[in-house]
Amino acid sequence: MEITGLGWLGTRTRHASELADFYGNVLGLPLTHQEEGFWVFELPEGRNVEVFADDHRGKGHFDTGPVAGFAVQDLPAAVAELRAAGVELLGEPGPTWQHFRGPDGNVYELVTG
Rank of each mutant, 00 (worst) to 15 (best):
E2Y: 10
E2P: 10
I3L: 15
G7S: 11
W8F: 13
L9C: 15
L9T: 15
T11H: 11
T13V: 02
T13E: 05
H15G: 00
H15C: 00
H15V: 00
H15N: 03
H15E: 08
H15A: 07
A16P: 05
S17R: 08
S17C: 01
S17L: 00
E18H: 08
L19W: 09
Y23S: 03
G24D: 02
N25G: 15
L27K: 05
L29V: 02
L29D: 00
T32F: 04
E35G: 10
E35W: 07
E36T: 10
F38Y: 14
W39S: 02
V40E: 09
V40M: 09
F41A: 12
L43K: 06
L43M: 11
P44N: 10
G46N: 09
R47D: 13
V49K: 03
V49H: 04
V49C: 08
V51M: 13
V51H: 11
F52C: 11
F52V: 06
A53K: 03
D54N: 10
D55G: 07
D55E: 14
H56K: 15
H56D: 03
H56A: 10
H56P: 00
H56S: 06
G58N: 12
G58R: 12
K59A: 03
G60L: 02
H61D: 13
H61T: 12
H61K: 09
F62V: 05
F62L: 15
D63W: 06
T64I: 07
T64M: 06
T64R: 11
T64E: 07
T64W: 10
P66G: 14
P66Q: 12
V67D: 07
V67L: 03
A68S: 14
G69V: 11
G69S: 11
A71K: 03
V72T: 09
Q73D: 13
Q73W: 01
Q73F: 00
D74F: 00
D74Y: 01
L75Q: 04
L75A: 08
P76L: 06
A77H: 07
A78N: 05
V79L: 03
E81A: 15
L82T: 08
R83G: 04
R83T: 14
R83S: 13
A84M: 01
A84H: 01
G86M: 06
V87Q: 06
L89E: 14
L89D: 12
G94A: 13
P95T: 11
P95R: 11
T96K: 09
T96E: 08
T96M: 08
T96R: 10
T96N: 05
T96I: 08
T96F: 07
W97V: 10
W97K: 01
W97I: 09
H99A: 12
H99P: 00
H99Y: 15
F100A: 08
G102P: 01
P103L: 14
D104H: 08
D104F: 05
G105C: 05
G105A: 03
G105D: 02
N106E: 10
Y108C: 10
L110V: 07
V111P: 00
G113A: 07
